[in-house]
Design a protein around this nucleic acid. Sequence first.
DNA 1: TCCGGCAGGATTGTTTACAATAAAGTTGAC
DNA 2: GTCAACTTTATTGTAAACAATCCTGCCGGA
Lengths: 228, 228
Amino acid sequence: MSPIRMRRPKRGEGEGHCYRELRRALLEGRLVPGQRLVETELVRMFGVGRAAVRTALARLEQEGVVERVLNRGARVRLLTEGEAVEILEARAALECVAVRYAALRARAEDVQVLREILRESTECARTGDLLGYSERNGRFHQELARASGHATVVRLLDSLRTQMVRYQYRTVMAPGRVERSLQEHRAIVTAVASRDPDAAEAAMRVHLGGVLEALRHVARRTAAAAVP
Amino acid sequence: MSPIRMRRPKRGEGEGHCYRELRRALLEGRLVPGQRLVETELVRMFGVGRAAVRTALARLEQEGVVERVLNRGARVRLLTEGEAVEILEARAALECVAVRYAALRARAEDVQVLREILRESTECARTGDLLGYSERNGRFHQELARASGHATVVRLLDSLRTQMVRYQYRTVMAPGRVERSLQEHRAIVTAVASRDPDAAEAAMRVHLGGVLEALRHVARRTAAAAVP
DNA sequence: TCCGGCAGGATTGTTTACAATAAAGTTGAC
DNA sequence: GTCAACTTTATTGTAAACAATCCTGCCGGA
C-alpha cells in the first residue's frame, strides 16, 4: 500500500475522507483482495483517527467490499467465481432498469458523453490497449446509469461495481470479446439516442448475457485448472 | 421509542447487536421516519458504547435507512413517493432474478413453506385482517428470495425491503387489491413448484407491475398505498 | 521429531474524556 | 414588541487510554 500521507482532513470529514480514499484505492487496484486492513496503518495513511477508520470500514463491510471478522480485523473481500457471477446477474437486472430509464430521460449531452466514450473505446480496441478499454467500459456503464437519473439503481450499481473490481480485467481478456463488447455498446447507445426503451433493454440484455457467458467460461477454466 | 433496556451484550457483539435491534425497531414501526436518533439515547436503550452506536448508524446509513448530517446527527430517513417508486422498481428487477432461481433451485420444503404462507394469507384475506395480510405478504417475498439460494440478490432485496417499511403498513387500502395480490402470489408459487422459470418470472412481473402501478397512482394522489 | 502449554506482542473492541459545532435561550437596545 | 448579538446547552466528532482477544514463537516432555 502506498505510504503517502495526505493532508489532515478537517473535523467532520475524517470518516468520509477515509471511506472515499479506501474505496478509490480499491478501484485503482492498490488494494488486492484478501489483503489485511490494519486500523493503525490506515490511521497513519489517511491521517484520521481510529474511530473514523473504524466506521469507514463498517460502511465498506455493509457495502460488501470488505470483510470483517471479530477480533481479527478487516480485509478486502475475496470473491469466488460463483459470487462474481451472482453479482453480475444482479447488475444485469439493474442495468436493464437503468438503460430503460436512460432511453426515456437521457439528455442530448448525456448521449454526447456516451458517444465520446465509445470513440475512445474504439481507439483502445484498435491499438490493443486492453487496460484502457476496460477503464472505458467501466465509465460507459457508469455514465449510462447516471443518464438514467434513477438514484436508487445508480447507488446499487455503484456498490456492485466496486465489488467486481477484480474481475473487470479478466472478462475483457477473452479473445474477440473486445470487438463484440464494443459493438454491443454501440447498439445500446443507438437505442438510447433514438429513445427506444424496449430496444435499449434488449440490447443491454444481449450485452450482459455475453459478459456473463464469458465469466462463466472463465469460471469453468479456472475450476478445471484447480482440479487437474 | 421503547425505554426498555436489554441485557448487556458481550464484547464484540455490541455493534452488531445495536445494528440488528435498530433495524428491527424500524421494521416493527417503533421508529418513525424523520425521527431523530440521538446517540446517547441509543446507548442507554441498547446498553452498548457510543462507538458501537456510531458504527451501527454508519452501516444503516450505507444501507439507506438512516440519514446523517454533519454535526447534527442521524435520523430515520424519510422517503418521498418518488423514491418509493424507485425502490420498488429496483426490487422488481431483483425479484425477477430471485424467482427465476427459486424455480430452478427450490426444494420441496421451500415450496411447502410458501404454500403455508399462502394458506395463512387466504385466511387473512377472508377475515379482512389487513395487517396480518401485509405481514404474510412480506414473509412471502422474503421466503421466495431465500428459496432462490442467490445470496447477493437476497442481500440487496433485504436492504431494499427495510427502506420500504413506511409503505408496507399503509398498504392494504386499495379495494380489491388484496384479492388480486393473493391470486398473483398463487400463480407464482404454481410456476415455482412446476420448475418453470419463465412462467415464474412472468408471473412475478405481472405481480410487481400491478403493485407499481398502484403505487404510481398513489404518488399522484398521496392517499392510499399498494399491496406488494 | 512432534505435540501441547505458555508467555509476549500485535491488534482489535470498548470506555472515557475532551473539543467543536449547532440549536436554543437570554439579554438589551431601539 | 422586535431583532441582533451573546451565552448556554445539547450533541456530535475526535483523541487517547484500557482491556480482551488472537497469533507467534518458544519451551519442555513424550
